[in-house]
């Protein structure tokens, strides 16, 4: 069995694509179906490391301060990230509790940790032995991190609650808002194709 780094097979239509100059900056598309094969950008590792650090700090802030406060005639309720999960468990809505906890907290924080664990060493010129595992996990967890959808949910709830009382946005909400954009930037910068190439080259040198 041999691997060919310059020959790419399109994952959508199975066409064999001969990429002539795979390290030039730009977007590489499948000539048959037009699907994006990969995106090559300079400074990907540096950018990913920086964005990962930013996301980690913002996520820390998000979990430390209150998210939203709600006031109705003297009664005040404050909610942070875990409040709704806590009440869902109290109401024994296990599936909802697990889904909310996983998609807004556990999976996003795992993804940030994975990005740091992978791009930290890469930034300092080392290829960690666990890189293949991390790359696979980053691929598998992507659809289940739903911070952006949660943000839309927050806006909808705010509109709903404004009619019942006073809604006050906490520091967490602002940190979370910025984090959603940082994570989106991370996704457009990320190029698994290039990291797999680095992993393979490092392995060849070892031999």
């Amino acid at each position: 069995m041999g691997t060919h780094t310059h020959i790419v097979v399109c994952h959508e239509c199975d066409e064999i694509v001969n990429v002539v100059d795979p390290y030039k900056e730009g977007r590489y598309k499948c000539p048959r179906c037009g699907h994006l094969l990969f995106r090559q950008k300079h400074g990907m590792i540096e950018k990913m490391f920086a964005l990962g650090l930013a996301a980690a700090i913002l996520f820390g802030l998000t979990n430390y301060f209150p998210f939203l406060s709600f006031e109705v005639i003297g009664n005040r309720a404050e909610a942070n990230f875990l409040t709704s999960v806590q009440y869902l468990i109290e109401e024994q809505e296990w599936l909802l509790a697990v889904a909310v906890l996983m998609t807004t907290l556990v999976v996003p924080s795992i993804r940030i940790a994975l990005v740091l664990a992978l791009f930290g060493p890469l930034y300092f010129g080392k290829v960690p032995g666990y890189a293949p595992g991390v790359l696979k996990l980053l691929d598998q967890t992507l659809p289940w991190a739903m911070v952006d959808v949660f943000l839309v949910g927050v806006f909808v709830s705010m509109v709903k609650l404004v009619k019942m009382g006073t809604v006050i946005a906490g520091i967490s909400l602002w940190a979370f808002l910025v984090m959603v954009f940082v994570m989106a930037a991370m996704q457009t910068t990320y190029n698994a194709h290039m990291v797999w190439d680095i992993v393979e080259t490092a392995r060849r040198r070892e031999r």
Binding site: A77, A79, V100, T103, P143, F150, G153, S157, L161
Partner: peptide, 23 residues
């Protein structure tokens, strides 16, 4: 594939409402 996760909005709205309206 792209629109898949966006239906979760309503589930999140329920989760946020029960967290804040709890007196």
């Amino acid at each position: 594939e792209l629109i898949g996760k966006w239906s979760m909005v309503d589930v999140y709205v329920v989760a946020i409402m029960i967290a804040l309206v709890h007196f």
